[in-house]
Lab assay of single mutants.
Amino acid sequence: PAHPYDRLKTTSTDPVSDIDVTRREAYLSSEEFKEKFGMTKEAFYKLPKWKQNKFKMAVQLF
């Protein structure tokens, strides 16, 4: 299930529990994912792991 970005980011005051914290981005809706990352999930997962992590750090999901 998708969760709002505000509850997934590492600085959230009301974090979602029971998620894989190493894959926070996977819980974003497709729309919100595209808004935050500027690309689709499919394109994101084709990137090298280090680049994925760099993007995730930039949007507080790492």
Rank of each mutant, 00 (worst) to 15 (best):
N53W: 10
D20L: 03
M57C: 14
R23M: 12
K9D: 09
P4E: 06
R23W: 06
P1I: 14
K46Q: 12
F33H: 00
K51E: 13
A58G: 05
Y5M: 03
D14E: 06
R7N: 07
S29D: 10
D20T: 04
S17H: 14
E35I: 10
Q52K: 01
F33C: 06
F62H: 15
P15L: 08
L28R: 01
T13N: 12
M39E: 00
S29P: 02
L61C: 14
L28H: 03
L28I: 03
P48W: 03
R24S: 06
R23S: 10
K9H: 08
P1R: 11
F44H: 00
S12Y: 06
A43C: 13
L61E: 03
T10N: 14
Q60K: 11
L28T: 01
N53A: 12
Q60E: 14
A58R: 12
E42F: 10
M39R: 01
M39N: 00
M39D: 00
E35S: 11
F55N: 02
I19W: 07
D6T: 00
L61Y: 06
T10W: 05
K36R: 12
K41V: 05
V21Q: 11
E25C: 12
P48E: 02
A26I: 10
L28E: 02
K34S: 14
V59M: 14
M39V: 03
K34D: 08
K46G: 12
L8M: 05
V21F: 11
S29W: 04
P1W: 09
N53K: 11
A26Y: 12
K49F: 10
K56I: 05
F62C: 15
N53Q: 11
K49I: 14
T13W: 07
S29E: 03
E35W: 12
E25Q: 03
L61P: 03
E31G: 09
D18E: 09
I19T: 03
V16Q: 07
A58W: 13
E32H: 03
N53Y: 09
K54A: 12
T40M: 07
K49D: 06
N53P: 01
I19E: 05
E32A: 05
P48I: 00
V16P: 06
L61G: 09
T11Q: 07
F33P: 01
A58T: 10
K46R: 14
L61S: 04
M57E: 11
F44W: 05
R24I: 11
T40I: 04
D6L: 00
L8A: 05
K36C: 13
S30Q: 12
S17W: 13
L28Y: 04
D18Y: 06
L28K: 03
F37N: 00
V21N: 06
Q52A: 02
Y5A: 03
I19M: 02
L8S: 01
E31A: 12
L8I: 08
T11C: 15
L28G: 01
F55I: 10
T22R: 09
S17V: 13
R24W: 14
A58I: 10
F44V: 00
K54T: 08
T10Q: 05
K41P: 07
E32I: 09
L61A: 09
K36I: 15
A43L: 13
K56C: 12
K9N: 11
K49M: 12
E35N: 08
I19A: 06
D20W: 02
E35V: 09
T13V: 11
H3G: 03
G38R: 10
F44E: 00
K41H: 08
E32W: 06
K41S: 06
D14A: 05
K49N: 05
D18I: 03
Q52D: 00
E31V: 10
Q60P: 08
E32F: 08
A58N: 09
R24K: 06
S12F: 06
A2R: 14
T40S: 12
V59I: 12
K46E: 10
A26G: 06
T10A: 04
V21E: 12
Y45N: 03
E42C: 12
Y45V: 05
M39F: 04
A2C: 15
D20P: 02
E25D: 03
V16F: 07
Y27Q: 04
Q52P: 00
A43Y: 08
Y5C: 13
N53E: 11
Y5L: 05
T11K: 02
P1F: 10
N53H: 09
A58Y: 12
L28F: 09
I19V: 08
K54I: 13
E31H: 12
Y5Q: 07
R23F: 07
Q52M: 01
K56N: 03
